[in-house]
Design a protein around this nucleic acid. Structure first.
Length: 563
RNA sequence: GUGCCUGUAGCUCAGCUGGAUAGAGCGUUUGGCUACGGACCAAAAGGCCAGGGGUUCGAAUCCCUUCAGGCACGCCA
């Protein structure tokens, strides 16, 4: 049982408070010398009608502290608790060593399903740098939830519907060739798309033809469908290369076209509940009461819209997966859209609308301006990853020329560095993409954590095999204590990351652990003469390795054995 | 115009469900391998927490307001 839980029990009994109330009082002191855990008594002053300081000293005497509490000190309104270092090290390390890389796993999500809608690329459009955030954050959330025992359904809600496919077919038939498309895939589709827009400015007839071809797709015309499916297959084949590099997989590729025959239900239910209002020829759900502009669900020509499709998808997913939560990892530009249709689902009478979560993230732009598909100015994610891998290889050749599987390690390190760029900070922050930053391999970066992890592997390989009991009193120095603290906090960080849908909490924590370990590593010799000390320190190294590997895994980043 | 988001060290960011002296990394300056991996470690310098009010025993954190930047606001997704 972890120490904090035991302290809560003990304080709860002494003060006759609920466990929740006590948990609010606890805090980790800002400085090491102040102890390992503090009970902050300001908060009780009003409630108990006593001076905070008096409460602290009273609690100190009254409570029956567990045996791992070495001493308790009153300092102002704080009651500072000091743990027995050996007992703490033992408590933490026994848990980590027993679980190995499963330390921190739980059954929190047992029997619950989480749908995660992420990446959601568009057919015939480039898989560009703007998709990195959704893909990497979604993947991390998938892994984090899975690790906590949830059943996860990763959904790539493909953009595979719309008039642009009519345009593409027109462009293909006029200026494209089968060989060209087969050879250059999305790049040539993009070129056709750009050319269509250029030519359509001069010749408006093209737009009519595009509408006609899209109608043919809708009506199941064999020729139209064949071309469309071919584009789709090529796009996905190309995307799979990127997903493989990023260690991403999906459970469903049901995209926009999948919901074509599921839209009527939405309209029918909205009608039945009298939620539809006609407005300028279109049909909307009025949301004025909730301080929002109306949500458009039917165009004046009778066609459905974005919101309609998202609602249809949500209904389908609830029926199919009976999710506990449904996460939508989509950029914050669409905040209003999600607020609107979540509200519409609520008005339709579905209580589970509260389980729909828009996991918003900031914009990725290039230093020279934003991305524009139409102008063909776009940065392919595959190129970015390729460049990162190249740079990683250069560094490996320079620093580890003897390494055996250089290409493989370069891939793990290069990709890790890029992924880190988007999972290491709060989602909401905008990112101006810079190669210098993304390919930085020093300081708070994925390669730093990977390097530290490889170091632990290396030490463990060189150490002699030892057995027998571990003397935890060997781990009472300052640096080992810091490492133990970081290991102890790991499981709670993963849970918090899931609750807040913020993978960076895991990223920051493993960096802190790596830093603590590297300090320890420099201050203390691990392999040495003293067998008892060596055994204890090796146990610590092994625990660090488990957590670093798992932490990286949770972020979708691999950990090479050597680098 | 209305709504939402962001503003913390030269740069990139933590800390924001209020608590002890505001922390990292990069960059700058200065040190550290007779060592288990120098992609490392240590030290220094660097702050009106955008500005102003308020609430509180206590505010980077909560409320109001001003400013700056971003996003969104009807038939694209």
């Amino acid at each position: 049982m972890d120490f904090t839980a035991q302290i809560i029990d003990c304080v709860k009994d002494a003060l006759r408070l609920s466990a929740e109330d006590v948990a609010e009082l606890l805090e980790t002191p800002p400085e090491r010398e102040m102890g390992d855990l503090a009970v902050v008594c300001f908060k009780l002053a009003k409630r108990l009608r006593k001076a905070p300081q008096a409460i602290a000293s009273e609690l100190k005497d009254k409570a029956v502290w567990p045996d791992f509490v070495e001493r308790a000190e009153v300092k102002g309104a704080y009651l500072n608790l000091f743990y027995d270092k050996a007992k703490r090290a033992q408590n933490v390390l026994e848990a980590v060593l027993a679980a190995g890389e499963n330390y921190g796993a739980s059954h929190l999500g047992r029997g619950k399903t989480v749908c995660i809608d992420f990446s959601s690329i568009n057919i015939a459009k480039p898989f560009h740098i703007g998709h990195l955030s959704s893909t990497a954050i979604g993947n991390a959330l998938y892994r984090i939830h899975e690790f906590l025992g949830y059943r996860c359904v990763g959904i790539n809600h493909l953009g595979d519907w719309g008039t642009q496919f009519g345009k593409l077919i027109v462009a293909y038939k006029r200026w494209g060739s089968k060989e060209e498309i087969e050879a250059r895939s999305v790049e040539s589709m993009l070129a056709l798309y750009v050319r269509f827009h250029d030519e359509a400015e001069k010749d408006p007839v093209l737009e009519d033809q595009a509408r006609e071809w899209f109608r043919r797709i809708e009506n199941g015309d064999p020729e139209a469908l064949e071309i469309f499916e071919w584009f789709k297959e090529l796009t996905l084949r190309e995307a799979e290369r990127v997903y493989k590099l990023l260690n991403v997989r999906f459970d469903s590729y049901a995209g926009e076209s999948f919901y074509n025959d599921k839209m009527n239900r939405v309209i029918d239910e909205l009608r039945a509940r009298n939620l539809l209002v006609e407005s300028d020829g279109a049909w909307v759900v009025d949301l004025e009461e909730y301080g929002m502009p109306p949500c458009l669900v039917l165009k004046s020509d009778g066609a459905t819209l974005y919101a309609t499709r998202d609602i249809a998808a949500a209904l389908y997913r609830k029926d199919t997966y009976d999710f506990h939560k449904a996460l939508y990892v989509v950029a914050y530009q669409q905040n209003l859209h999600f607020l609107q249709w979540f509200k519409v689902v609520e008005l339709m009478g579905y209580a589970w609308s509260k389980d729909l979560v828009h996991v918003a993230f900031g914009m990725v732009s290039m230093e020279d301006g934003t991305l524009s598909t139409r102008r063909g100015k776009v940065v392919f994610l595959e190129d970015v990853l390729g460049r990162a891998i190249e740079k990683a290889l250069e560094i490996i050749n320079e620093k580890s020329p003897e390494l055996e599987n250089k290409e493989d390690v370069a891939r793990q390190v290069g990709v890790g560095a890029v992924v880190w760029g988007t999972v290491s900070n709060a989602r909401i922050k905008d990112i101006v993409f810079s190669y210098d930053r993304a390919l930085s391999f020093e300081g708070e970066t994925a390669p730093y954590v990977q390097y530290t992890c490889a170091r632990t592997t290396s030490v463990l390989e060189k150490a002699p095999a030892l057995d027998g009991d571990i003397d935890y009193a060997q781990l009472c120095d300052e640096e080992a204590g810091e490492v133990v603290r970081m290991l102890e906090a790991f499981p709670a960080k993963i849970i918090e990351a899931a609750e807040r849908c913020e993978p960076y909490l895991v990223a920051r924590h493993i960096v802190n652990l790596a830093q603590a370990f590297n300090r320890f590593y420099y201050e203390h010799r691990i392999i040495g003469e003293d067998a008892a000390r060596m055994r204890a320190r090796l146990a610590l190294v092994s625990a660090v390795r488990s957590c670093l590997k798992r932490g990286l895994w949770l972020l979708g980043i691999e950990a090479p054995e050597h680098m």
